[in-house]
Design a protein around this nucleic acid. Structure first.
Lengths: 143, 143
DNA sequence: TATACTAACTTGCATGACGAAAGTCACGGG
DNA sequence: CCCGTGACTTTCGTCATGCAAGTTAGTATA
């Protein structure tokens, strides 16, 4: 049965985001793209099956997370390049990475470091108005 | 076929995280918990099916994202409370929210605001060593 | 005693997501 | 003509997902 809509019952940007990037493997494809992967075989290194990769790339291109760019003719061949919309998923991927570094055990096949300083990149909450790291947040639910 | 391991081919904290929270509905359950939901019916407001909710809550409790706390006897009834491990998924959920606010259209059934200031909460990258917002990052892939 | 209500599940079944494996395509090169 | 290449497509089996109905273990009420 097709995945149920995550956003049908409660309108929510989180649910709408997950409808786009929440399928199995999707965020890993975006991870690999953020690390520089563009071509089909580069994405395959994650262990994903061909048919799933093809399907995901098509869906993510339809959602304008990627754009398909021809890099060769005869025959025509395409690579998948992140759009601005796609690149701005970096905080999501990095937040998962920071959480995973803290709460799961195992190695990392990649490094992401602060250029110059060399420090690891984390993710912090920040108020969009005053810029401060919030000590507390007010939540309100409208149902 | 059972979901393939996301982390088998490439060791990665992002993949390991998604193995825990990447199933359909999981991050929305955590969203609702962060907003205060604890009981089964509270989680059901998202639109999720009973059997899926039960299955997800069990899996997330096994992964120590939640702990199951008895709130009543006769009969025994339990609510699901986030652990520290679970609460620290907030940056992931808020990063999805910030992205969704920017790139998808639609309303939000909840508000998350900076206590006092009232500003919306965003997510920013930050160097874990020097604390700065990185202007550029170095990435290295070891395959 | 029988019935209703409650919150939290479980069960049965159908559909399609997922994934492995093999095959195809359109080229160029030897 | 055969082989290699990169990028898919196709086939088929398994099981994740989800709907709808049912069950459980209590209490309350008539």
């Amino acid at each position: 049965m097709r995945h149920a809509s995550l956003a049908a019952a409660l309108p929510c940007p989180i649910a709408r985001s997950l409808e786009i990037v929440g399928e199995w493997w999707s965020l890993l494809i975006i991870r690999d793209a953020l690390l520089g992967a563009r071509r089909f075989d580069e994405f395959k290194r994650s262990g994903i099956s061909d048919n799933i990769l093809s399907s995901r790339l098509k869906g993510l291109t339809d959602a304008r997370i990627f754009k398909r760019v021809r890099y060769q003719t005869s025959p025509d061949r395409y690579e998948y390049v992140l759009t601005d919309k796609g690149r701005e998923l970096a905080p999501v991927v990095l937040a998962l990475r920071a959480w995973g570094r803290r709460w799961t055990k195992g190695n990392d096949f990649s490094e992401v470091r602060h250029e110059g300083c060399g420090g690891n990149i984390g993710v912090a909450l920040a108020c969009e108005t005053c810029g401060e790291v919030p000590q507390a947040v007010d939540t309100r639910v409208t149902i």
